[in-house]
Computed example of a mutant assay.
Amino acid sequence: MLMHTNGQDFLDISVVQGVAVLTLNRPEKLNALDVATRRRLAAVIRELGTGESVRGIVLTGRGRAFSAGEDLHSAPSTDAEVREAFETFHDITRAVLETRVPVIAAVNGLAVGGASEITLCCDARIGTPATEYYQPENGRGITISNASSVLLRRLVGNHAMRMVLGCPRLGSEEALRIGLLDEVVEPDALVGRAIDTVLAWTPEGNTTALHLALLRPLPEEIEQAFAREDAAAQASWDSGALTAGIQGFLATRGTDA
């Protein structure tokens, strides 16, 4: 089974009570996700998601952020890189929805853009009082991905329009109220609560894998969302809005953003 790695791998993996805990570990960059990390995350979820070695998966982050989403210092500069950027986000969603075990997002802090969208395909989202959701794409020339055009409405209904177009930062209380979070616990209880949820959902003799397949969105619905999102991303790229938005963000925040 895949375990801890070193170097430029920003994903830590441990197993607690038979549950895999995947921790985004790049706190100095608010756990921003580069392409390599996204590819590895999808591969690890697929390997562990068979249910042969663990009962479930918990995804969390180290430090004050769950993840700042796309690493804008490695932003795409060609057509091929734009396609790769969106495809590697999409593939995490595919990997989660293909698992035969529950996948729980333990949202320890700020979840931005594509990272916030990754949590939408998980089977539950547990937060802390420090949890915040922020989807700034509409003001940065970027478009939503990860099938969030379907998954966000599925969770929060008409609140999705306000979240995407208005780009507000949603604190944990509001996220809980509208159904974006399932539960809010104290920070030191977060990962433990997520593990307990997996254990409760996978009793001996369970049919959890069958129920996950019944309760999750259909693969064809997800792929149709990906196709629409890819077309929107290409239009944003072709218009120059994506490049201008990223450059504007970096100019405002500086090289340590």
Rank of each mutant, 00 (worst) to 15 (best):
L33G: 07
E70N: 04
E28G: 07
V16E: 10
L24F: 11
L59M: 01
V16D: 10
A42L: 12
F10C: 03
R55I: 09
V54L: 00
A75G: 04
N31H: 01
G51R: 12
S77C: 15
V21F: 08
G18D: 05
S14H: 14
V44G: 03
R26I: 00
V58H: 02
V16C: 09
H73R: 12
D12N: 15
V54W: 10
I13N: 08
G61P: 08
G69S: 03
F66I: 06
G63E: 04
D71F: 13
F66K: 09
S14V: 09
D79N: 12
S77E: 15
G63F: 04
L11C: 00
R26W: 14
S77G: 15
A80H: 15
G61H: 00
G63D: 02
L41S: 07
V44D: 05
D71C: 06
A68Y: 12
L11D: 12
N31K: 03
I45C: 03
A80Q: 10
R55N: 13
V35W: 13
L48T: 01
G51W: 04
Q8T: 12
A80T: 11
Q8M: 10
V44I: 06
G56V: 03
R55F: 08
S14T: 15
V82I: 15
S77N: 15
R64V: 10
V19M: 13
R83F: 12
R64N: 14
S77R: 14
A43V: 08
N25T: 11
E81F: 11
E70R: 01
R39D: 04
K29Q: 12
A36H: 04
G69Q: 01
L41V: 06
A42G: 08
V44E: 02
E81N: 00
D34K: 00
I13T: 04
S53P: 00
I13L: 11
E81A: 08
G51D: 05
D34E: 02
A32D: 09
L48W: 00
T37I: 10
T78G: 13
G56H: 06
R64P: 10
A36F: 07
T23V: 00
R55H: 14
R62M: 14
D34H: 11
V19T: 10
A80K: 14
V35M: 01
R64Q: 03
V21T: 02
V54E: 13
I13G: 01
D9R: 08
A36R: 09
E28H: 14
L24W: 08
R46N: 12
R40G: 14
G61N: 06
V44A: 11
E81Y: 04
I45P: 10
A20L: 07
S53V: 13
S14A: 13
R62H: 15
R39A: 08
G49Y: 01
D12M: 04
L24E: 02
L33A: 05
S74H: 15
L30P: 05
L59S: 09
I57C: 02
V21Y: 02
T50F: 10
A20Q: 05
R26Q: 03
I57F: 05
S14D: 14
D9P: 09
E47Y: 14
A68S: 15
A20K: 00
T60L: 12
R26V: 01
S74M: 14
L72I: 07
R62I: 05
G51F: 06
L72A: 06
L22G: 06
E70P: 00
D79P: 12
S77M: 15
V19P: 12
R38S: 03
I45D: 06
F66Y: 11
V21P: 01
L48R: 00
V19H: 08
V54A: 11
T50W: 12
L41R: 04
